[in-house]
Amino acid sequence: MFLTVLGALNVGFLQTLKLFAVTLIGAVPLGLLVAFGSMSRFSPLRYLTKLVVWVIRGTPLMLQLIIIYYIPGRVMGASPWGSGEGGRFLASAIAFIINYSCYFSEIYRGGIQGVPVGQQEAGQVLGMTKDQIFFKITLLQMVKRIVPPMSNEIITLVKDTSIARIISMQELIWAGYAFLKGSHGYSGLIWPLFFTGVYYLLFNGVLTLFFGWVERKLDFFR
């Protein structure tokens, strides 16, 4: 029994890892673009970006996921995501990327605006271009400032992947809950659902150690 449960949970955990990785790959760069939009001197773009960020941050991720997965199919008559697990994963990935890019954008914005203006002015005095000032002065110091809040959001992302089960994506929690409903010939087993917590704890423990190492590596900015 234990090996059967472990095998099913491993499959679910792989889906969780996949969603986690795809979200980071998409949301980290997109969040920076959104941050630039929210700081743009072009007022229509700035206000539009801030409106989108406000809506995304102000509504539950679960609701956003349901809207993204179900509404297009209702409007167009056929789901653009396709059928099966692949379609559910694609919709989940898009919802998570949009959601987390908005949260990351606020962290980026705070990090960029937290760099003293005097240092940018010093770069101008030295004859540096705007791009050189951003990449060699602002960006490096921003990275140091955003590591703690970014690490917190990324650890939250690990746990938020469980929300994808609302559209029946077979992630870790779904795999554990399946044994309660009668999966693999077993029914009424509740311990596999609680055992999923071990996976989250171990993975978040690894991430915590990694981000602690990153912070120590960036201490030279002090």
Rank of each mutant, 00 (worst) to 15 (best):
L209A: 04
L189Y: 13
A95F: 12
V143R: 14
P80R: 10
L19Y: 11
K130W: 10
T59W: 04
K18Y: 14
M76Y: 14
A93D: 01
F42Q: 10
V75E: 05
S83A: 15
F36P: 05
K144P: 11
M128E: 01
I146A: 03
F104N: 02
L45T: 15
T156K: 12
E215L: 04
R41S: 10
P72G: 04
A27V: 10
W213G: 09
G110N: 07
L157E: 08
T129I: 02
M76H: 08
G188V: 05
R88N: 04
P149A: 00
A178Q: 12
T49P: 05
V52I: 13
A21L: 11
A175K: 13
L51G: 06
F211T: 05
L33H: 13
M1Q: 08
G82K: 13
G114K: 10
K136L: 12
Q119C: 06
I146R: 10
A21R: 03
Q124N: 11
A91H: 09
G205C: 03
L63V: 14
R74N: 13
L24F: 10
A78H: 13
G176K: 03
F42G: 06
W191G: 01
T16V: 03
N204P: 00
F203S: 01
N204A: 01
Q132K: 11
S101G: 06
T16A: 00
G58P: 15
I133F: 06
P149F: 06
I25Q: 04
L6D: 09
I146Q: 08
P148N: 06
P116D: 00
V11F: 13
F42V: 15
S168Y: 14
N204F: 11
G123N: 02
P44S: 02
P72S: 04
A91I: 04
Q113Y: 10
L9M: 09
S151H: 12
I155V: 13
R88E: 02
T23N: 05
F134V: 07
L33A: 14
G111V: 05
K144G: 13
L126R: 15
S168M: 15
M1T: 15
V115G: 04
V125C: 01
V52A: 07
L201N: 06
P60N: 07
Q15K: 11
G12V: 04
F2L: 15
L201F: 15
A8D: 06
G37I: 07
A93H: 10
P192D: 00
G7K: 12
I68A: 03
I25E: 04
L126F: 14
G185L: 03
V198E: 03
Q64V: 08
L6E: 01
F195Q: 00
G205P: 09
